[in-house]
Design a binder for these strands. Structure first.
Lengths: 248, 248
DNA sequence: TATATTTATTGTTGTAATGACACTAACTGA
DNA sequence: TCAGTTAGTGTCATTACAACAATAAATATA
C-alpha cells in the first residue's frame, strides 16, 4: 500500500483491505401526477431513524445492474423496468462503519404499476414527493438524490424517458404535465402539441377519455420509433447531468 | 448470501466475500492535431502482452477521484487537469482472477503538457491515435474506451470541454479542428466562427501566429465566462453519453 | 334550450438560429 | 505581379420556435 509502483499486474488480493460495494437505487414514480421517490427508514446505527435510498450489497456472482434490479424488485415488486447507472459514490468517510463504495442507479416505475411489496411495513418504506423529501437523508443520500434529479431533468430533454413514467395509454397534456413537474416550469400548450407530434413517437389509440370539458385523445408510446431524437429546449434549461456527465 | 432479505442494516462485513475495486483512467490528449489515448502494455497473465487502459486499486483512505488523479499523475506526471467519472464496470467475469469492479474516469490533458513520465519504458506505455488503437484491448477495455469516446463527443456539444485539450493559446481553426476530429465530420468555417464568437468564451490575446498564408489570431479561453452555455449542434449529432447517461 | 365554463386542439406570426456558400483579407514564394 | 495558401467576414433563404389567438367538443347551469 505504500508502494505506489504497484499495479494490477503485481496485485495480490489477500494483501489488501477491500472496500464494500453496494448498489443504491433511486426509484422514481408518478403518484397523483406528482413525482415521487422511494425511501426506506433505517432501523439501526448509523443514521438510525433516518430515511435513506434503498440499496444493498452486491453479491459476488451478479452484475451491478442485476444487483440494482434485484433491489428494485425487492422494494417494489417491479421487474423489467427502465433502469440506468447514475454515478458511483465512494468518499472514504461516507459510511462510518467501513469503507463503502456505492454504485447508484436510477429507475423509473410506471404510474400504474407502482405498489410496495412490503405494504405492512408502511413506516419503513414510503413514496415521498420529491418536493417534500425529509431532510437530511442518511449518509450522502441527499447528494445521490440531487444527482438523480439532475440526471432525470437532463435526459428528459433529449430522450423519450418521460414515457417510462406514464401508463400504457395517456394524453398529450398528461405528458406535458410530467415535463412541467420535472423541469419546474410551465410549458406552452400549443408548442408542446406541435413538438411532441412532430417527433413522431406517439401512436393514436382511438380511445377517448371523458372529463369535465372536451374529451381527450389517448395515445400510446411507439417504442419502435423510439429513435426519435427529441430535443426539448423549453426556455434555456440545460442542466448538467449531475456529478459529471454530468448532464451527460 | 442466500438470504435475500438481508439489508444494509443487518450486514456484517466479515461474513461476505468482497469484490476488488479499481479505477481505470481513460486519458485523452491531442498530438499533431489528432486525438490520442494513453494505453499500457500488460506484462502478466491475464491478457499478457495486451494493451490496456491504465488503472489501479483504490486505496482504503482515498476518494475515487483522488485515486484516479493519482493514477493519472503516475502515468503522465500531470496534475490539476480535467477529470470526471465516466461509468462503473462490474460484470462478474470481466477479470478472470477475481471479481473486480472498476470505476472508470476520463481525463483530458492539454496538448502542450503531455509527456510520459516513464519514457524509457516506451514499450510499455504509449499514446495511440484513437483511430488506430490495437484491438482487442485487455479485459473489457474496448467497451470502456468506447464509452469514454461517446461521453467526450456528447459533452463537446454542450460544454467547453474542448478547451481542455488545447494549449493556453490557440486559433479558432485549431479549435474547429478538434470538433471535427471528435465528431468525425467537417464543420463550416463561417458558421463555426460565428458560433464560437457569439458564445463569448474567447479572449483575444493580440498575438498572431505566422504561417504559410495569412497569419492567424490567437485566443485564450475565458474560464470566468465559462458559464457560456454552448450548444453546438452541428448536423444532427446527438449521441448518448455511452452506457447510460448516456448522453448525460 | 341557451349559454357559460372547461378542457382539448389547431393556427398564425414575428423573430431568432443556422446551414450553405460566396466573398474579402493578409501573407509567402516564384 | 500574380498564383497559391490560409484566415476571416458577409449574405441569404430556410427552418425552428416562442407567444398568443382561435376554434372544437364536451359538461354544468340558468
Amino acid at each position: 500500500m505504500t508502494d505506489t509502483e504497484e499495479t494490477a499486474e503485481t496485485y495480490d488480493p489477500s494483501r489488501y483491505e477491500r472496500p464494500s460495494v453496494t448498489v443504491d437505487v433511486v426509484i422514481f414514480t408518478l403518484i397523483d401526477r406528482e413525482l415521487h421517490v422511494l425511501l426506506v427508514r433505517r432501523k439501526r446505527w448509523p443514521f438510525e431513524g433516518y430515511w435513506a435510498i434503498p440499496g444493498g450489497f452486491v453479491q459476488m456472482h451478479e452484475s451491478l445492474e442485476d444487483a440494482a434490479r434485484r433491489e428494485l424488485e425487492e422494494e417494489t415488486g417491479v421487474r423489467d423496468i427502465y433502469i440506468e447507472q447514475l454515478y458511483t459514490f465512494g468518499d472514504p468517510d461516507r459510511d462510518p462503519r467501513t469503507r463503502v463504495i456505492s454504485v447508484a442507479y436510477f429507475a423509473l416505475v410506471r404510474a400504474d404499476r407502482q405498489r410496495l411489496r412490503v405494504s405492512d411495513e408502511s413506516l419503513d418504506v414510503r413514496w415521498f414527493p420529491v418536493r417534500a423529501v425529509p431532510s437530511p437523508l442518511a449518509f450522502d443520500h441527499d447528494r445521490i438524490l440531487a444527482t438523480a434529479l439532475a440526471r432525470l431533468r437532463s435526459k428528459l430533454e433529449y430522450t423519450t424517458l418521460a414515457f417510462e413514467l406514464l401508463p400504457e395509454v395517456f394524453s398529450i397534456l398528461e405528458l406535458k404535465h410530467i415535463y412541467e413537474q420535472i423541469f419546474g416550469e410551465k410549458l406552452d400548450k400549443g408548442n408542446f402539441y406541435r413538438k411532441i407530434k412532430d417527433a413522431g413517437v406517439l401512436e393514436e389509440t382511438g380511445l377517448l377519455r371523458e372529463g369535465r370539458g372536451r374529451p381527450t385523445r389517448l395515445y400510446r408510446f411507439r417504442r419502435d420509433r423510439g429513435d426519435g431524437q427529441f430535443v426539448f429546449r423549453w426556455r434555456e434549461a440545460r442542466i448538467d447531468a449531475g456529478e459529471s456527465h454530468e448532464r451527460d
